[in-house]
Design a protein around this nucleic acid. Structure first.
Lengths: 248, 248
DNA sequence: TCCCCATTTGCGGTTTTTTGCAGTTTTTTA
DNA sequence: TAAAAAACTGCAAAAAACCGCAAATGGGGA
C-alpha cells in the first residue's frame, strides 16, 4: 500500500468522523502504530489535521455545526460497521441507493478488493474514493429524487449479473407484509437485484421496522440477513428471528 | 510489447484506480520494475501522472481545492452562457464529462424540456437538479480519475442513440492535429458520441487551443461549432473559421 | 534477407526511503 | 502517585529507487 493512499484514507476518516484513533487506524490499515504516528505527524505538518495524544482531530473540530450532524448519523454508522465484515475479497456486490449504503462505502477497510455494482449515483461516487474497489455503474433513466437509475435497461443489466451478495437499503419492513417501498420503479430494480444475488442483506434503521409502503418488494423470507442499529436481542426483532432470518 | 502500449496500459490503470503499484505493474506487464519506474518517470515528466515512492497517483488524486480552479470558473461560465441557447425544447443531447459541462447544466433555463444522455457522474448529478430535464445515464465500469463510465458496454449503448446534438468537452484541440485526449478509454467514448449526434459542439477554454495529447479523437472538420471564452474574431480562432467551423 | 545503429531493457551494486521494533520518556488516568 | 497507554528515539532490516553498463530489441536501408 502506498503511503499517500494510507494518508488519504486517514484524512478521509478524520474529516468524516472529526476524530481518529491511532490504534484503530493501525488495525484497519494493517501497519504499526508508529507508522500511523508518522503519518499523522506529516499530515499535521501540512495542516491537514490536528494531532493529539492518541490520534488526531479534523481542522473543523471546533466548528459547532458538525458534531450534531455526526450524531444524527450514528445509527447508520452502526449499521455500516456491522455490514462491512460481510464483504470479503474478490466478491461481486450489488447495492441499492440510500444514505445507509453511502455510509457502508465509507466504512469499508481500505485493503478490501472487490467489485461493486450499483445504479445509485451518490453511492457509486463514494466508491470512487476507494483505492482497490472496482465500480460498475448500471445505466438507464435517472430518477431525480433518489438519484438512482431505473427502467427496463437497468433491470435487464442486473439480471445478467450473478453477484455474491446484495445490500438492500429499505424504506419499510414488516414481518408479515414484507419489504415495501414508495417508488414503483425503484421496486422493480430492487426485485431484480434480489434475484441476481446469492445472499440478500437488508439494512434499515429501527424506525422503519413494522412500517409499510404501497409497493411490495419481497417477503421477509427472501432476505438472509437483517441489520439494524439495535442489538439482535431487541424485542422488535423477535418476529424476524422466528422466520429464520439472521439478525445482527 | 511496445513501450507506448505499456505506458497506455499504465495510464489506463492509474486513471481507473487513482493509483498504481510498481510491483504489480511489473508482474502484470512481465517487465522489470526498473522498466516500470522508467515509464512512470517519463509519464510524470509529461504531467500525465504523479510518481511517488512505490508507484504513482492520478493527477486528480488530491484535487478537491485547486488554486487555478477559481479563475477558470469564470471562463467556463462564459462558455456555458454561449452554449445554452443551442439547446431547444425536446432535443436529445449527448454530453461528455468535465467542469465546463457541469457549468452548462447550471446555465440552462428552468423552462427547458429536453433529454440529456451522459456517462459522467458529476454532470448527471447536476442535471438531476433541473426540473424538466430527463437524464439518461450510460452505464459501465467507472473510471475513478474522471468519474465517467468507460468500456464496450457504454460505447455500444451510445451507438444505439441518435441524438440531435453532442457537447464535447475537450482536453486539447489543434487545427491540424484535431481533437486529442490523454485517456484512451475516454477517447473511445467520445468517438462514439460524435458518431451518434447530428451536430457536434466543441467546448474548450482558450488555453487548450493549439495543444495536443497522445490519443486522437477526431479531426476538427468533424465538429460543427467551437465555443471558447474568446470573442469569435480573436486571431487564435482564425484557423477554425477557415476550416468552415462555426465559431462563437 | 541481413546488417547497422539508436533505443530500450535487464542486471548488479549502491543509495535512499520506509517501516517495525526495543528501550526510554512523556502523558493520561484512576 | 503509580500503573498503563501512548509517544519519542535510535537503529536495523527490507523495500524501492537510482546509477551505469552491457545485452537485447527493433526499425529502416542496402
Amino acid at each position: 500500500m502506498l503511503k499517500q493512499e494510507r494518508q488519504a484514507f486517514i484524512l478521509h476518516q478524520v474529516n468524516l468522523h472529526n476524530q481518529v484513533l491511532s490504534t484503530s487506524l493501525s488495525q484497519e490499515l494493517e501497519v504499526s502504530e508508529d507508522t500511523i504516528r508518522r503519518d499523522l505527524q506529516e499530515l499535521a505538518d501540512n495542516k491537514r489535521l490536528i494531532k493529539v495524544h492518541g490520534g488526531a482531530l479534523s481542522l473543523s473540530f471546533n466548528e459547532p455545526h458538525h458534531p450534531t450532524h455526526v450524531y444524527a448519523h450514528t445509527q447508520k454508522k452502526l449499521i455500516a460497521r456491522k455490514a462491512a465484515p460481510l464483504i470479503q475479497n474478490d466478491m461481486f456486490v450489488l447495492t441499492t441507493g440510500g444514505t445507509t449504503l453511502i455510509e457502508l462505502a465509507r466504512h469499508l477497510p481500505p485493503t478490501l478488493k472487490a467489485t461493486f455494482i450499483s445504479g445509485s449515483l451518490p453511492v457509486v461516487l463514494e466508491y470512487t474514493q476507494h483505492p482497490l474497489i472496482d465500480v460498475i455503474l448500471i445505466g438507464d433513466k435517472v430518477s431525480k429524487n433518489s438519484k438512482i437509475t431505473v427502467g427496463g435497461e437497468a433491470i435487464s443489466k442486473i439480471r445478467q449479473i450473478k453477484a455474491d451478495i446484495c445490500f438492500l437499503g429499505v424504506n419499510a419492513i414488516d414481518a408479515e407484509l414484507g419489504i415495501t417501498d414508495n417508488d414503483w420503479e425503484v421496486v422493480q430494480v430492487k426485485k431484480a437485484m434480489i434475484e441476481s444475488a446469492q445472499k440478500v442483506i437488508c439494512l434499515t434503521i429501527a424506525e422503519k421496522i413494522n412500517s409499510s409502503q404501497p409497493f411490495h418488494v419481497c417477503p421477509v423470507e427472501d432476505i438472509d440477513t437483517l441489520i439494524t442499529e439495535l442489538p439482535p436481542e431487541d424485542p422488535r426483532l423477535e418476529p424476524y428471528h422466528k422466520k429464520g432470518i439472521h439478525v445482527i
